[in-house]
Design a protein around this nucleic acid. Structure first.
Lengths: 286, 286
DNA sequence: TTGCTCCTCACGTCACGTGAGGTGGC
DNA sequence: TTGCTCCTCACGTCACGTGAGGTGGC
């Protein structure tokens, strides 16, 4: 029989750890002195402790280990648990490797002089499907024509009283980005369906499980830089493009911002334009 | 300006997360209504939020991110942080890969019929250096000669009143394991130095930063199985042997157990022998 | 007697998730 | 008025580490 300190010393398991295992019932001391509450461990308990440590080293949680030890399950079950664990660890490794790639990408961004341009932070998030009033057309994306199209869909939504409190969106349906005239779709989100007319279509706009996104602040003439950063990120991180580019107009002046608050809160109404670029992506090889 | 729910929705950041970032001062809402305590966020804040999310995805902690954002440091500093982070993630990956190897080893142990033999749980821990009274000799490790040698060092330690409360140890100095006569060293730990005599040497026994260890319960004639399991584990997990095998006699009958408690606590004195095998190891390629 | 070891609370960790219980705006 | 959204506590997570404050054994 060993006092906790000795047992701790030659097992290389901290006293606190042993007490913790006692507390959760994972490894009870063979004997506890009723007067002093001193814990006494027997050499018999070493195999169990070692089994606990070995399973912990495989990444099992203590509660799970308790079940593994006490139900003493069949080899087949044990094999199942191990394979599950293996899958989890493999996933973890993939995750950390992807993280490494992101870090490398960021480092090389610093190495290159591009660090002197405003830095863009690329973030991956989902894009929800939603109902929208939309107009799709071939126009010059830089022209006033786009503004007119937005006015049209906004008028449509206002007329039917179905404008949802989310920002307007523009989708670039051509694979390539900006070269004069191209196929774009302007739209505003709706709270409920309304009958379309000759110009405006009401449709569900599909979502994406993952899109690489950047926020661009300032005029639209510099959106190209944001898009370039987005493309570099997507390539550098082993993704491939999986859908048309979306532009979300988070702030674009005071007009048409039905989803904004009353004047009292328009503290930032004089600020610059804020636009999010969303590029649907998927992992290469999956 | 957006209410927290809307801001949450199109950033794909949970409301609770935004409140948390507010609480720790990482991302304060542009405006908080003094009457309702409602939080209002501005589109201006999206770049900062995206920066937070991007850094978090690289694995930085929130407190660290706060420092990175508010001190806005030089490119050189940022590069240093990233390289540090990269090193940590690489370490993490190596750790998870080693874990994968251990899981694989355990799986293949199950696949082979060896699973029917008593399962040994191999654990890696340090072996402390310590002072000991020792006798080193070429003898047959299975013979009574070993017992006599232990009696001798125990007598020596008792005579000088320097016996430490740790179990006796035997070291196999030959590279190979058990084949009749070999070079072994028996020893008991001491609390203080004492002058050696013709037979007994007093010396510091070196420690090891890592040893693969198994607990064997039962007679010594089956220790070979434990050793075999140890060797398989060491090979299967890409380690190489880095020192002589050690046998620690954690329980070996009631005699000579000066580190045990009075009779009242000898509840397990009739139990089987308990022995730990310790094989110093190091990682291949490091 | 003095260290040394042991004990039991109790709190901290990290980034939120999950209710409980209550209020403001359409 | 009824939902819906927002608010503030407060507790839980996971495997312990770190004191604080006190006691038993040589």
């Amino acid at each position: 029989m060993f006092k906790i300190g000795d047992f701790s010393k030659f097992t290389c398991v901290s006293v606190k750890q042993l007490r913790h295992y006692d507390e959760i019932g994972l490894l009870r001391p063979r004997l506890v002195d009723p007067y002093t509450s001193y814990r006494y461990y027997s050499a018999d308990q070493l195999p169990r402790l070692n089994r606990i440590l070995a399973l912990r080293d495989l990444g099992f949680g203590l509660e799970q280990i308790a079940r593994l030890l006490d139900n003493d399950l069949s080899l087949e079950q044990m094999r199942g648990m191990l394979k599950l664990r293996r899958a989890e660890v493999e996933k973890q490794v993939r995750h950390e490797l992807a993280r490494l790639t992101r870090i490398e990408a960021r480092l090389s961004q610093i190495e290159q002089a591009e660090a002197t341009v405003p830095p863009y932070d690329v973030v991956v998030h989902a894009v929800e499907a939603h109902l929208a009033a939309a107009i799709r057309q071939r126009v010059d994306a830089d022209s006033d024509a786009v503004t007119h199209l937005f006015e049209e869909v906004e008028r449509f939504a206002a007329r039917h009283r179905v404008r949802a409190a989310s920002p307007p969106v523009m989708i670039y349906h051509d694979a390539e980005y900006r070269d004069g005239e191209q196929e774009i779709e302007v739209m505003v989100p709706l709270t409920a369906a309304a009958p379309g007319d000759g110009q405006v279509t009401v449709r569900m706009v599909g979502g994406h499980t993952a899109a690489a996104c950047v926020i661009h602040t300032g005029g639209y003439d510099q959106l190209e830089m944001a898009f370039a950063a987005l493309l570099r990120w997507v390539e550098g991180n082993q993704y491939t493009i999986d859908g048309p580019l979306r532009e979300v107009f988070l702030r674009f002046g005071s007009s048409g911002e039905g989803y904004q608050l009353p004047d009292a809160f328009l503290a930032d109404s004089t600020g610059e334009f804020v636009t999010e670029l969303q590029l649907p992506i998927k992992k290469i090889d999956s």
